[in-house]
Design a protein around this nucleic acid. Structure first.
Length: 424
RNA sequence: GGGAGCGUAGCUCAGUUGGCAGAGCACCGCGCUGUGGCCGCGGCGGUCGCGGGUUCAAGUCCCGUCGCUCCUCCCA
């Protein structure tokens, strides 16, 4: 049988890849507006980075991570997310030594062993930002504003987007809140779904975002994380919300919002789209003030988020982005007869050196066919036949208007550049 | 991990109670090597996902398997 790609890992073909490039370009521009610089991280890390950072008991780590030993038996993992790597790199290279807030962004593939479906692949791609070194609630709000700015820059229609925010407190608050949840749910344990009965012991916070109707109903009246915050966390959350208001950001406070990664503290948020079906989270993030310590570094607060490229592009194409024309060639060179081949090849090179995107046929297509290809792919056809050659000329045809002009071979690249610039 | 549906040409899909493998689009050629879009004619293109089974005969029925899609789950 023919060798095929691995389940959950797909190719992004040119017809789609150019949309990715355009989106990535837009993301980079907006990141730069907020003072973020790119960091490029390895795709493979020590498995320990994630079991310590993201949490041994999280689904992402203990059920979905690609783990394998290298040839010397070192436990490695394909990264399931990038925040732990960013913090690892921050500590490893002493980026804190520069003082102030370190703002980093990344783009790249992540890996999780899940059942693939629409908007969920085993190799998927995330864009994300991390701001390290400040506890300031204004920074939480700024990170969220940046996320919203991205959506606006990409012209995502706001009515399909919902920003949810919550605070899950610090490491002192969390055990207390967990206990509060346990004692609330314990008497109703029989009414919970089997998963949640297990969660009651392991991680009662996750009962809150269970979608089982019975669990949801119970969760509705459950104690709220925001009622179990220490004074410091309460103050912080209040400040975050007031900065969000000041920035004019529309959001919903959602006391059931809990994230699946253990490193989150205080602020957590999520941006969902109604256009995505079951996998509706476009991006998610929050604060992770203990992560640096979990990884053996000095205490360093941080906030950030990560978004899924595939889902972003799904929403964008759903809104008709990418339906317009792909970038065209400037020129398609059409030689007529064998004599013209050599000058055509030479001319191609000169066109390209002049900065014009140019191509020609290499499979021996008929003149008519070459013109047809030119009409589809290029703005101009450059016809080079015996008639032109005797005069050292070429015919340039504007494929949108059908008009032709004749130029001397020597000046063709220059003249075409002039035409191409005017028509842009 | 649990549940459901679907896999036929590059793409979108027909294919009757089991009886010769089809269409449209795309691609290539010709009409028309001196000019693309329209039209006409012709052509290329298939391990019917894969492997078994039932049958005189399987795209069609049965079992398994892989893949995709949806729900659940998880999250980006």
């Amino acid at each position: 049988m023919r060798v095929e790609s691995v389940r959950g890992m797909r190719d992004i073909l040119p017809e789609e890849a150019w949309v990715w490039q355009a989106v990535e370009e837009m993301l980079r521009q907006v990141f730069a507006l907020y003072g973020y610089e790119e960091i490029r991280l390895p795709v493979v890390e020590r498995a320990e980075l994630f079991s310590r950072g993201v949490g041994e008991t999280t689904e992402v780590v203990h059920k979905e991570m690609y783990v394998f030993p290298d040839r010397k038996g070192l436990e490695l993992a394909l990264r399931p997310e990038a925040t732990a790597s960013v913090v690892r790199a921050y500590l490893e290279h002493g980026l804190y030594a520069k003082g102030g807030v370190t703002k980093l962004y990344y783009l790249g593939p992540m890996f999780r062993y899940e059942k693939p479906q629409m908007g969920r692949q085993r190799q998927f791609h995330q864009y994300g930002v991390e701001a390290l070194g400040s506890l300031d609630p204004a920074l939480d709000a700024e990170v969220m504003a940046l996320a919203w700015h991205l959506m606006e820059a990409l012209e995502l229609r706001g009515e399909h987007l919902l920003f949810r925010v919550n605070s899950i407190g610090c490491r002192e608050d969390r055990p207390k809140y967990r206990e509060a949840l346990r004692s609330y749910f314990a008497p109703h344990a029989a009414g919970l779904c089997p998963d949640c009965q297990r969660r009651l012991e392991e991680n009662p916070l996750r009962i809150l975002d269970c979608k089982e109707p019975a669990c949801r109903e119970l969760a509705g009246a459950a104690p709220r994380a925001t009622d179990h915050l220490c004074p410091g966390c309460k103050e912080h959350f209040g400040q975050v919300l007031s900065f969000l208001d000041a920035l004019g950001l529309v959001y919903v406070e959602d006391p059931t919002l809990v994230r699946g990664l253990d490193y989150y503290t205080r602020t957590v948020f999520e941006l969902a789209s109604r256009e995505l079906g079951a996998q509706d989270a476009l991006l998610g993030g929050g604060r992770y003030d203990d992560l640096a310590e979990l990884l053996g570094g000095a205490p360093t607060p941080g906030v950030g988020f990560a978004g899924g490229m595939e889902r972003l592009i799904l929403v964008l194409t759903g809104q008709g982005v990418g339906a317009q024309e792909r970038p065209l060639l400037d020129v398609y060179v059409v030689p007529i007869g064998g004599e013209a081949k050599r000058p055509a090849v030479e001319l191609l090179t000169r066109l390209r050196k002049a900065g014009l995107a140019a191509d020609m046929d290499y499979v021996g297509r008929s003149l008519r066919k070459m013109m047809e290809i030119a009409g589809k792919r290029a703005r101009y056809a450059l016809i080079l036949g015996p008639d032109e050659l005797v005069r050292d000329q070429a015919t340039v045809k504007n494929l949108a208007t059908g008009e032709s002009q004749t130029f001397s071979l020597a000046e063709v690249p220059e003249r075409l550049r002039g035409l191409a610039e005017r028509s842009c």
